[in-house]
Deep mutational scan, measured.
Amino acid sequence: MTEYKLVVVGAGGVGKSALTIQLIQNHFVDEYDPTIEDSYRKQVVIDGETCLLDILDTAGQEEYSAMRDQYMRTGEGFLCVFAINNTKSFEDIHHYREQIKRVKDSEDVPMVLVGNKCDLPSRTVDTKQAQDLARSYGIPFIETSAKTRQGVDDAFYTLVREIRKHKEKMSKDGKKKKKKSKTKCVIM
C-alpha cells in the first residue's frame, strides 16, 4: 500500500485542523484551538488504489514558523489553505509557496490551493482571484467548507493525484537520464 505524506499549511484560523478532522473523523470542530502540530493517518481508496494518507496539520501562528522547514522537508505534497473571508490569509499563500519551493529546492512541488469556509456569506476573496492565482502557479484550486464537508475529500484526493503525477514524471525523467548515460565512448 502506497503511503502519501501530505502537509496542510496556511495562516492561523483558516480551518486547516477543521478540514483535516472532517476528512479523518467526519465531524466539524467549530471551536478554535490553535494547533502546534498534529499528525493523522487514514486509509482510503483513490482511483481504485488503496493508500495510506499521513497528514500533518501544522501551526499557522507566526511564533511556530521555525518548525516549518522541518515538516516541509518531509512532506510530499501540500494543501495551501486560505479562508475566503480573510484576504490576508490569501496573500500569505505566496509566502508559504515560496518557502516550500526553497526548502524542497524545487520549482515543481505537488500543491493544491484550497479556499476554505465557502459556506460563509462574508467572502472577501473572489473565486476568480483564487483561480487566477492557482493557474499562475500551475496547481489545482478547490473551494471547501469544513463545516458542510463540501470539497473536503476532493481537496485531499486531488493532492494525492498531483503527487502521483509528480512521481510518474520524475521516474520518466530518471529513465531518460539513465538511457543517456548508457551511451559509451570508444577510443581507438
Rank of each mutant, 00 (worst) to 15 (best):
162 E>S: 09
81 V>E: 15
72 M>I: 11
106 S>I: 09
71 Y>P: 05
119 D>F: 14
22 Q>D: 15
85 N>S: 04
145 S>R: 07
56 L>S: 07
81 V>H: 13
47 D>M: 02
136 S>Q: 14
181 S>A: 08
12 G>H: 14
96 Y>A: 11
89 S>F: 15
87 T>R: 13
102 R>W: 07
42 K>Y: 02
49 E>N: 09
184 K>W: 01
100 I>P: 01
83 A>S: 15
157 Y>R: 13
71 Y>W: 07
130 A>S: 06
187 I>Y: 10
158 T>S: 07
144 T>P: 15
132 D>T: 05
69 D>V: 02
31 E>M: 09
134 A>N: 02
62 E>K: 03
12 G>E: 04
63 E>P: 05
176 K>V: 13
55 I>E: 00
13 G>L: 05
43 Q>C: 05
60 G>Y: 14
59 A>C: 14
16 K>Y: 01
121 P>R: 08
16 K>S: 15
64 Y>A: 09
21 I>Q: 06
21 I>T: 07
116 N>D: 14
162 E>Q: 06
92 D>A: 06
81 V>L: 15
163 I>M: 04
5 K>I: 00
142 I>H: 04
60 G>W: 13
59 A>L: 03
39 S>V: 09
40 Y>T: 00
86 N>T: 02
53 L>W: 03
103 V>N: 07
8 V>R: 01
20 T>I: 03
84 I>K: 13
71 Y>K: 06
98 E>C: 02
142 I>C: 13
18 A>I: 04
34 P>K: 14
167 K>P: 06
162 E>Y: 09
101 K>S: 11
133 L>E: 04
156 F>E: 09
93 I>D: 03
155 A>K: 05
119 D>G: 13
15 G>K: 00
83 A>M: 04
46 I>E: 14
32 Y>F: 13
154 D>Q: 08
123 R>L: 08
29 V>S: 03
91 E>V: 02
111 M>S: 00
152 V>K: 13
116 N>Q: 14
157 Y>C: 10
112 V>R: 00
39 S>C: 12
27 H>D: 09
98 E>W: 00
151 G>R: 06
42 K>M: 05
78 F>S: 02
186 V>I: 15
51 C>M: 11
115 G>A: 09
76 E>T: 15
124 T>Y: 08
13 G>K: 07
6 L>T: 04
111 M>H: 02
59 A>T: 13
106 S>N: 10
112 V>L: 13
16 K>P: 01
142 I>Y: 02
48 G>Y: 04
77 G>D: 00
125 V>T: 11
64 Y>P: 07
172 K>R: 07
94 H>R: 13
153 D>L: 09
46 I>M: 07
138 G>K: 02
81 V>Y: 12
18 A>R: 01
64 Y>H: 13
162 E>L: 08
137 Y>Q: 03
43 Q>S: 09
33 D>S: 00
42 K>A: 02
52 L>E: 03
50 T>V: 11
167 K>S: 09
113 L>S: 01
11 A>G: 05
118 C>Y: 07
77 G>E: 00
135 R>M: 07
88 K>Q: 12
122 S>Q: 09
20 T>V: 04
134 A>P: 02
31 E>V: 04
177 K>V: 06
9 V>A: 04
98 E>Q: 05
66 A>P: 08
82 F>E: 11
163 I>T: 08
28 F>G: 00
133 L>H: 09
60 G>C: 15
159 L>E: 04
28 F>E: 00
113 L>V: 12
17 S>C: 01
162 E>V: 03
99 Q>F: 14
58 T>C: 13
107 E>W: 11
142 I>M: 02
100 I>N: 02
59 A>D: 04
64 Y>M: 08
140 P>R: 01
86 N>P: 09
168 E>S: 09
13 G>Q: 08
180 K>S: 09
14 V>H: 06
90 F>G: 09
28 F>P: 01
24 I>W: 00
52 L>S: 02
88 K>E: 14
147 K>R: 08
148 T>N: 12
41 R>I: 00
54 D>P: 00
92 D>I: 02
49 E>V: 08
26 N>A: 12
14 V>F: 10
97 R>Y: 13
71 Y>L: 14
19 L>D: 07
29 V>H: 07
135 R>H: 09
6 L>M: 12
186 V>T: 13
10 G>W: 01
159 L>V: 11
156 F>S: 11
26 N>Y: 04
